[in-house]
Design a protein around this nucleic acid. Sequence first.
DNA 1: ATAATAGTGTCTATGAGACAGTATAGC
DNA 2: GCTATACTGTCTCATAGACACTATTAT
Lengths: 234, 234
Amino acid sequence: MKKREEEKAYLESYNESDYVKPSVAVDILVLTIDNNLLKAVAVRRDEMPFKDMWALPGVFVGINETLDEAALRGIKEETGMDEIYMEQLYTWSDINRDPRMRVISVSYIALINSKQIQLKAGKRVSDASLIPVYDLLSNTEEMAFDHAKILQYGVERIRNKVEYTQIAFELLEEKFTLPELQRVYEIILGKSLYKANFRKKVKDLIEETGDIQAGVANRPSKYYRLKEKMEVSL
Amino acid sequence: MKKREEEKAYLESYNESDYVKPSVAVDILVLTIDNNLLKAVAVRRDEMPFKDMWALPGVFVGINETLDEAALRGIKEETGMDEIYMEQLYTWSDINRDPRMRVISVSYIALINSKQIQLKAGKRVSDASLIPVYDLLSNTEEMAFDHAKILQYGVERIRNKVEYTQIAFELLEEKFTLPELQRVYEIILGKSLYKANFRKKVKDLIEETGDIQAGVANRPSKYYRLKEKMEVSL
DNA sequence: ATAATAGTGTCTATGAGACAGTATAGC
DNA sequence: GCTATACTGTCTCATAGACACTATTAT
């Protein structure tokens, strides 16, 4: 019974193209920490619909491309970056999320170090910029499509994951000081942490590199690196 | 630059249909507890590819249907159930996950009480059955498509979520005893728990209904119900 | 009384949070 | 010396885990 319908749908869409398919896109929330703020890569739209509003970078998924590949392609187009941390967030499918046509969007989140980012910026209003996340979240009516939802979902996800994974390290360079690391946690969580407790929490994850900070007018901090990548699922 | 390509892709797929789109399907992992085992609804395929292997219930997503709607439709077709707990899992996109054509699959997990399930079963080999999850997980080569991955991913997700959400209650009826509830946790987690500690953990979530078990050859247990649904994100 | 399962009290180890203290650079 | 920031020791409290104990039904 049900089985029959399934095969029928398969065959329909296979033999003839009279089965109307939605388009599939990938939208990427690229987050970074810049100037002590959590920021997202956003593009100001210069055409309808949602003209002049902020959109997340997105691409359509090619017929011979996986979602991960499409997401990487989108990130590279927008930031020039290649080797980055990335994970799938959620798939959005409201019928009219794009008023022009039916588009199902698989969202991704990517974390990058702002020092390495190369925004394709400056030439047109619509090129990519780094926008503080909290500005966007408090002006969701200025965001195109359902991208405010994606942003909200993504920010909540890293707030959770920063507590039990090592994603925070993706926002720093390979060598970092503990005050820097702590600042990353504080920016993501939106609250200040006790130094001593924070250090207890991360001490098993990191190791000293040997070098220390130089040229600061106070006690210099030691540099650390991540000891090893831990496997964490979900 | 990037912007141009995006608009172009939109227009191409909008005006003419020369942009080849993948198909989008929903595959659903329906879990239940039956006879003290965690079981999944599975369908034995009676056609190629993957003939005679176990597949999860799935449907194609209609052009005017959200993913949630498609998942609900699939669940209802297979189990007859309507009001159930369901959440999106992950979206799978390997190029050849379906050898016949390009299909992107959005997976869902659903939890239902086995007492209410009405499998459309018995008529054909390919109708739905309840299969112990651990049998499937230890014979992944008997599963069609990438459905073993979905199963693995889904089981891991509820193992995590059972600890900090109330999903376990979805597998029971409205009234339940604490030994029953504990058994649900133990079956999902795959280990036994200390009674006293377990009760401390859940005591704020539940309230007594007033009635107690009858006709058992030992001290009867009290019946409880879930106090209120808690909001938990992600 | 016995068997069988329901239900409780309490000790301990662990970890989060709070706070006070010491250390080391430039000036 | 002073200022500024790095870094550490320790107390308290909440929670998870382990285990021993008591309670109530049918037979």
